[in-house]
Design a protein around this nucleic acid. Structure first.
Lengths: 164, 164
DNA sequence: GTATCAGTACTCGGATAAATTATGTCCGAGTGGTAAAGG
DNA sequence: CCTTTACCACTCGGACATAATTTATCCGAGTACTGATAC
């Protein structure tokens, strides 16, 4: 009880995607390198990248010089999509039709439409994802956006790409 | 990975509060009875009720004829408050300042303000809770609101109160 | 008949286990560069 | 010198443990009703 928070991998996924957004069209960055950049457990980040790849957010290229890159342009990748891929499989609130349980169970025929509670929850969740869907990776990396820190992203990612 | 959903106790808490909203001013309903109404594990629901009591949403009355009732009028109890009490202790998204980790860690002085990711997430969460805060228990029990099912609530709760 | 009082049945509250989920780790399949060997 | 070829380093992908959180359960503290008892 009393946590109900998104998995931390969501944070990792977003920041990783922001880094990938800094890459040139034909550049790639392998998962171990991304983990090194943020000092994250490499093996687990690989699993997160898998989910992002499965969701079509990033494109994986296997092989010796393989790695990850965004599947589409940064302005076409919304944060909502990343959150859905890594932390919100189905929904925040799942209605278990509690009204159909117990001695006073409601008639199933009356339950064709979702109950008011479920409807409200869906509306709230829609508002949540709406905010996230309206913001793309490009929006976050805009100057003054403070994606990670002032100019930190653009500057350091390029430095990091070269130096091992 | 891939769940990130609210605890199911949130659903229980909301529906239980809706039942309590049907009670008269001086009426009480004990936790075991509430559990019986929805066919829920009584001992666990008791724990949920504890959280609701600690949050000031419901008022607990101990003793032989004790039980629970809403602490304030139904129109003054927002669904958001219930969700916060039972499923959202701190926040959906918690920023771990990933930008300050790794070889290219940002200067802590530059991190006085939250990063763009955290700021966006907070905005989305605010939108989420805003929807939930604008709806009270009274709104959900309004005729045509289909809180649980058409007229189910008002009708059956009173029947249930009498019959053991 | 009335007041007192002990007993009891029922309540909430917190401390304690089991199950599910998130986190972390590992090894196998596949790709492409690399360098050696042959023409 | 160029082509072929086998090898190896490095990649992603999925199967396997560990840690944390949710779910579930139990027993103790307290209150008010119940009935008996004394007056």
């Amino acid at each position: 009880m009393r946590s109900g928070r998104l998995p931390q991998s969501v944070e990792w996924a977003i920041h990783v995607c922001l880094v990938l957004a800094q890459l040139a069209e034909d550049e790639l960055l392998p998962a171990p390198r991304l983990a090194q950049l943020f000092d994250l457990p490499a093996a687990y980040l690989a699993k997160v990248m898998q989910d992002l790849a499965a969701a079509g957010v990033v494109r994986s290229v296997p092989g010796r010089r393989g790695g990850y890159r965004l599947h589409t342009a940064p302005q076409d990748v919304s944060v909502g999509r990343i959150v859905r891929a890594t932390g919100l499989a189905d929904a925040l609130f799942v209605c278990t039709e509690i009204r159909q349980r117990g001695p006073c169970a409601a008639d199933p025929d009356q339950c064709r439409t979702p109950c008011a509670v479920a409807a409200l929850m869906r509306r709230a969740e829609a508002a949540y994802l709406d905010v996230l869907d309206r913001v793309s990776l490009a929006d976050l990396t805009m100057p003054g956006g403070r994606a990670s820190a002032d100019g930190w992203l653009t500057t350091n990612v390029h430095l990091f790409k070269e130096n091992p």
